[in-house]
C-alpha cells in the first residue's frame, strides 16, 4: 500500500494543505495534483534545471525534493513570480531578444535568473553563464539568454541610479 502524509505549506503566497504519497517528488505534485504545469520536468535527476522552483527564498530542483519535504516551507513557482510581477521586465527582455525558442527550459531559466537580477551590483557575462550553468537550453545556444539577463540587470541598475531613493 502507498504511504501518504498530510502536508501544509505556503505556495505562491497561499496556504495549501494536501495529502501526498511520500514517494512523490515535488514537481509531480505541483503539476499533477495542483495543475501548476509551468514547472517542467525534463530529466528527473537534477541535471537539466527545467523544474527549478524557489524553496524558502532559494532556488531548488523540485524533482530532487519530495512533496512531503515541502511541509512547512514557503514555495514559489514560475506561476507565482510571473503573477506578482517580480520578473515582468526579465520576461519582456526574453521576448525582445528571442531568448525563449521552444520555451521548454524557460520557466526554470527564469527562476534561476531571478536570483541574479535583484542585486545592486553589475554581474559579468561570465558570472551570468556560471549562474545559469545548471539549466540546459537546447535551442538558443544561451547567448540570447545571457543578453536578456544582462540587459534586465543593467536597466534595473540604471533605474536605481536615477531614482536613488527608490528600492
Amino acid at each position: 500500500m502507498q504511504n501518504t502524509r498530510e502536508i501544509a505549506f505556503t505556495l505562491n503566497g497561499e496556504e495549501v494543505s494536501h495529502r501526498v504519497p511520500v514517494r512523490q517528488h515535488l514537481a509531480d505534485f505541483l503539476r499533477h495534483e495542483l495543475g501548476l504545469t509551468g514547472t517542467h520536468i525534463g530529466c528527473e535527476q537534477g541535471v537539466c534545471g527545467a523544474c527549478t522552483i524557489r524553496v524558502n527564498g532559494r532556488s531548488a530542483r523540485s524533482c530532487l525534493m519530495l512533496a512531503v519535504q515541502a511541509d512547512g516551507c514557503v514555495v514559489e513557482t514560475i506561476e507565482g513570480i510571473s503573477q506578482s510581477g517580480e520578473i515582468a521586465d526579465l520576461q519582456h527582455e526574453f521576448i525582445q531578444r528571442n531568448a525563449a525558442q521552444c520555451a521548454f527550459c524557460t520557466p526554470g531559466m527564469l527562476m534561476t535568473a531571478a536570483d541574479l537580477i535583484g542585486g545592486k551590483e553589475p554581474v559579468s557575462r561570465d558570472a551570468i553563464r556560471d549562474h545559469i550553468s545548471g539549466n540546459y537550453c537546447r535551442c538558443t545556444g544561451y547567448h540570447a539568454i545571457v543578453d536578456a539577463i544582462e540587459s534586465t540587470l543593467n536597466k534595473r541598475l540604471a533605474s536605481d541610479k536615477s531614482n536613488p531613493h527608490h528600492g
Binding site: G49, T52, V55, S59, A60, R61, T112, S133, G134, N135
Partner: peptide
Amino acid sequence: MPHVAHVAIRNR
C-alpha cells in the same frame, strides 16, 4: 566550492 554543482543543487 564554486565547482561543487550548480546553484539550485548547492542550496540543498
